[in-house]
Design a protein around this nucleic acid. Structure first.
Length: 927
DNA sequence: TCGATCCCGTA
DNA sequence: GTACGGGATCGAG
């Protein structure tokens, strides 16, 4: 190591320990004390000290801690950090251990009464800079980011997420450089430290304002001219709070250094005290690392890094010149391209529709790519046929598709596409069955699910840092939008050919990862084969009784009108009932009702729970509004909207299923969403009766009973649950008996709530809210549940451990869902990710199973001589079919069989899957 | 015309 | 507490 510039590492010990406590799994030392956080802390110090001889590693190091509970900021503002919950019980005894651990490393530990760690860090940073040293602050606290210097002389290291935080990071995250960060933080406030900020201003607005005006004072000065009324008022009314907040977030250095800089030199660490500490704690793995290494755990030997998969990797820079794309308007040229595609054995294709959603309205053209940058557009339906003008030179639809058909159907030529479902649907209408195919959207979904969206332009941006020509640049937007087929051919070529080009390049990049990252099974055996199946469901659509819906609409409307009158009478005048803002004002300001709860936008909450609370207090208008909401919701969202969605050509409703939208692997349904048709309320359930079978057919509904609980029983290996399912017992009753020793209505209801809470990633707070009990009672109930069903507890901890280590969860079939926030330093994000990570394997396995059933269904029906039976809808655990009358029993047998055995042979479940089947003239009676 | 927010329907 | 999509309102452009 040369005598280069000294480099001081300042470790923000207090904040580290809190974060470590929340994110690391609990760990018990040999005295039965939880030491997870201290262990994490020790491992971190180890790693840092290990950098002594490394480039950019520390030459000097100190740990800075908070001391005492109040600082000069409390004198400034007595509410500062007032709402901080006390440290969790099992963290408290760990706090003094930090000092012990730090001493064991012979690293100085600095704390000062009345000063927060942040201020001490600011002081040392200033002193070290003055001495010409480099400083790295080991923390992820945003307040400390104010200290970062543009020239790199001060940066931060977030060891939790293993990343350097520098000026660019701050600019990216907050929109301003570190020098202006304090102003942004002052505006946005901090609910954890109870820094007030300005109401209604969050990170986004704060950053925008400071960027615009340069400083907090400038923002406050300009406040009267700000256009947005709410923002203006808040800025003026809370200017003092903003200034106070500015002082609260300011880091101050008003102390003499308790230890001189030179005293912080990092030495080789003496072995004895460290060994003693590790032995005391019983941390064998760290002890073993010391063996033969001397005390300093360096000498090049690092513990093996956790196994991480490749991931999307760094973006690959590409150069794209859209002007080189070809437009093909004659048969000879197209023939040459087709020949070259044949020679390559693969071709990327993209179809351009004519308007409306997806490709429903017909074909404007086809683009092809036969290599990176080698792409062309074949217009087929541009311009409107016109007796006087010929329109643009192009191959006609018939001729063009005639030439392309042999290529598209050639089994020896691989067709690459993005979201091929919609394109294959359209070609199928022309009688062209494309095979074989690969879909980059689905490949990306299988590889990078949960990481980001899988739209083509987003994938291109992520993988190539390239911006695709947006469709609106070609077709415009809104009312003035034109059909793709009416766009100028030159622009259409740039857009369409680029898409095919990008598909080609993406497949090159994704293909090899499928096998390497074990995503092949989900991609090839589940999602890809589902494409034509779902395409057929969309094409077939479901018949809807328009007259019946219209009648319901009428009834609902009349009912709504009378409710409206009564609401206005009770409210003392008309207002927009549908506006939560106005409703809140009427209830709490005009009528003066008590107990209004305001959300962060400053409006009163008027959601169902609040209105029900008012209703219980005898407020009649609350009941009326609830009824009004139910009726308007049903009318607007269902009876009216559904009528509008009936395709005039088929008289049926053709929903569209998104295959790569839901993180867990579920399908989603849009335009209209047929996966949220009402059923729970009596009134809502009437809407299901509008879904009817074609003349001579019945609607048949088959749904899995409690599939997610069954999967939880299997995955978490809970003997009692598995046994109950095997015997066909009522699962919630069984749970109630286990938990409470009785299965009265009340107990069973509670048990049911807990069972669901488990699936959703339980928290004592959430359960308490749901059951209307205290948090402690909720906690006790969860503890009891874990005690009775230890498998569930193990499942949760091992799942989280795995996700933290690898970054993703997996279903029984190997579908991965990534959780980028699982190690976030922002608690709410992290906890959200944890709940989702607990739920994803269960919800995702259920999605895999029903998808496998769907893939097998058409063949199974055909084999049974039921090719007239059609699968129409999927609602997560339910499939809806149209079956010829008189064949219902037989179809039910086949369907039940396919669904119940859909996990096999890949996965053998310890619990049976039950399938309930019903049928009738409409969905309401079938379900 | 667009995005954010609130509210609410399903599994 | 999980996973979605969509309607209305509101405020901005």
């Amino acid at each position: 190591m040369s005598d280069a510039q000294p480099h001081l590492y300042l470790v923000d010990g207090s904040s580290y320990i809190f974060r470590a406590y929340h994110r690391l799994p609990p760990l018990t030392n040999r005295h039965g004390m939880n030491t997870g956080a201290v262990y994490g802390y020790t491992a971190m110090l180890w790693k840092l000290a290990d950098g002594l001889s490394k480039a950019d590693g520390p030459t000097h190091m100190a740990v800075i801690l908070d001391k005492g509970s109040s600082s000069f900021r409390n004198a400034m503002y007595d509410q500062y950090k007032a709402h901080r919950p006390p440290a969790p019980e099992d963290l408290k005894p760990q706090l003094p251990l930090i000092r012990v651990a730090t001493r064991a490393f012979s690293i100085p530990c600095i704390e000062e009464e009345g000063l927060e760690a942040d201020d001490i860090i600011a002081c040392y940073t200033a002193a070290a800079r003055q001495a010409g040293w480099k400083v790295t602050i080991v923390s992820s606290d945003k307040d400390l980011m104010q200290l970062i210097e543009d020239d790199g002389s001060v940066d931060m290291l977030d060891t939790m997420n293993d990343r350097r935080i520098d000026r660019d990071y701050v600019v990216e995250k907050f929109g301003v450089p570190p020098q202006q960060l304090g102003d942004v933080l002052a505006l946005m406030g901090d609910s954890v430290d109870n820094v007030p900020g300005v109401p209604g201003i969050g990170p986004k607005t704060a950053s925008q304002l400071i960027q615009e005006h340069g400083s907090l004072e400038a923002v406050l000065a300009a406040a009267p001219e700000i256009k947005k009324p709410k923002l203006r008022e808040n800025l003026i009314a809370h200017a003092d709070n903003a200034r106070l907040s500015r002082e609260l977030v300011r880091l101050v250095c008003e102390m003499n250094l308790p230890e001189p800089l030179e005293a912080l030199a990092l030495q080789n660490i003496p072995e004895a005290p460290l060994r003693e500490f590790l032995e005391e704690q019983g941390w064998k793995s760290l002890l073993n690392r010391m063996v033969g290494q001397g005390a300093r755990p360096s000498n090049g030997e690092r513990p093996p890094a956790p196994v991480r998969e490749a991931g999307p990797g760094a973006p690959e820079a590409i150069s794209v010149d859209r002007s080189t794309y070809a437009t093909i308007s004659d048969a000879a040229t197209l023939g040459q391209w087709i020949a070259e595609a044949r020679a390559q054995g693969r071709v990327a294709i993209d179809l351009q529709g004519d308007g409306g959603h997806g490709l429903a309205e017909g074909l404007a053209g086809v683009s092809l790519a036969i290599g990176p940058g080698k792409a062309a557009y074949v217009p087929l339906g541009h311009g409107t046929p016109d007796l006087l003008n010929e329109g643009p030179a192009q191959l006609g639809l018939k001729e063009g598709l005639g030439l392309l058909r042999p290529l598209l159907e050639d089994e020896s030529v691989l067709k690459l596409g993005h979201n091929l479902k919609d394109q294959l649907k359209l070609l199928a209408e022309q009688g062209i069955v494309v095979s074989p195919v690969e879909d980059v959207m689905l490949a990306s979904f299988a590889l990078d699910g949960g990481r980001y969206g899988h739209a083509l332009d987003e994938l291109v941006k992520r993988h190539f840092e390239h911006e695709c020509l947006p469709l609106k640049a070609v077709c415009g937007t809104g009312q003035k939008a034109i059909r793709f087929g009416d766009a100028p051919i030159a622009a259409a070529t740039e857009y369409a050919a680029e898409n095919a080009d990008m598909v080609w390049r993406l497949w090159q990049r994704l293909e090899h990862r499928l096998a390497a990252e074990h995503a092949t099974r989900v991609y090839r055996l589940v999602d890809l084969p589902l494409v034509p199946v779902v395409g057929a469901m969309e094409r077939d659509g479901v018949k809807v009784d328009r007259a019946y819906l219209a009648e319901l609409s009428g009834t609902f409307a009349a009912e709504t009108a009378s409710l409206e009158e009564r609401i206005f009478a009770a409210a003392g005048g008309p207002f927009t009932i549908g506006s939560p803002q106005q409703l809140g004002q009427v209830l709490y300001d005009r009528l003066g009702l008590k107990g209004g709860r305001k959300g962060k936008s400053g409006n009163y909450s008027t959601d169902q729970a609040e209105l029900e609370r008012l209703e219980a207090d005898g407020v009649e208008v609350a009941r009326l509004v609830l009824d009004w909401r139910l009726l308007t919701k049903l009318r607007q969202t269902y009876t009216d909207a559904l009528q509008a969605q009936i395709d005039p050509k088929s008289g049926r409703v053709h929903t569209r299923y998104a295959l790569a939208a839901a993180q867990t692997g579920r399908l989603s349904s849009t335009d209209p969403n047929l996966q949220n048709i009402p059923i729970r309320t009596e009134l809502g359930a009437k809407i299901r009766n509008a879904f009817i079978a074609e003349e001579g057919f019945s609607l048949l509904s088959a749904d899995y009973g409690q599939i997610e609980l069954r999967l939880a029983a299997h995955i978490a290996d809970v003997p009692q649950l598995k046994e109950a399912f095997a015997k066909g017992e009522d699962i919630h009753t069984m749970t109630a008996m286990e938990l409470f020793g009785d299965a009265g209505k009340d107990s069973r209801g509670k048990a049911k709530t807990i069972n669901f809470a488990i699936l959703y990633g339980i928290s004592s707070w959430g359960l308490a809210g749901r059951l209307g009990i205290s948090r402690d009672e909720g906690k006790a109930m969860i503890d009891r549940y874990f005690e009775r069903f230890p498998g569930i507890k193990d499942y949760i901890s091992t799942t989280l451990e795995k996700v933290r280590e690898r970054g993703y969860s997996e279903t029984l079939f190997g579908r991965k869902t990534h959780f980028p926030n699982i190690r976030s330093s922002i608690m709410s994000l992290r906890q959200g990710a944890e709940r989702a990570a607990i739920n994803a394997p269960i919800q995702g396995t259920s999605a895999d199973i029903i998808k496998r059933a769907m893939v097998r269904m058409p063949g199974a029906l055909a084999d049974a001589g039921l090719s007239d039976a059609r699968m129409l809808l999927q609602v997560h655990d339910e499939l809806v079919f149209e079956v010829p009358q008189g064949r219902e029993e037989q179809a039910a047998e086949v369907i039940r069989d396919v669904m119940a055995n859909a996990a096999a042979p890949v996965v053998t479940l310890d619990v049976p899957l039950s399938v309930e089947v019903g049928w009738g003239a409409n969905w309401g009676v079938a379900h």
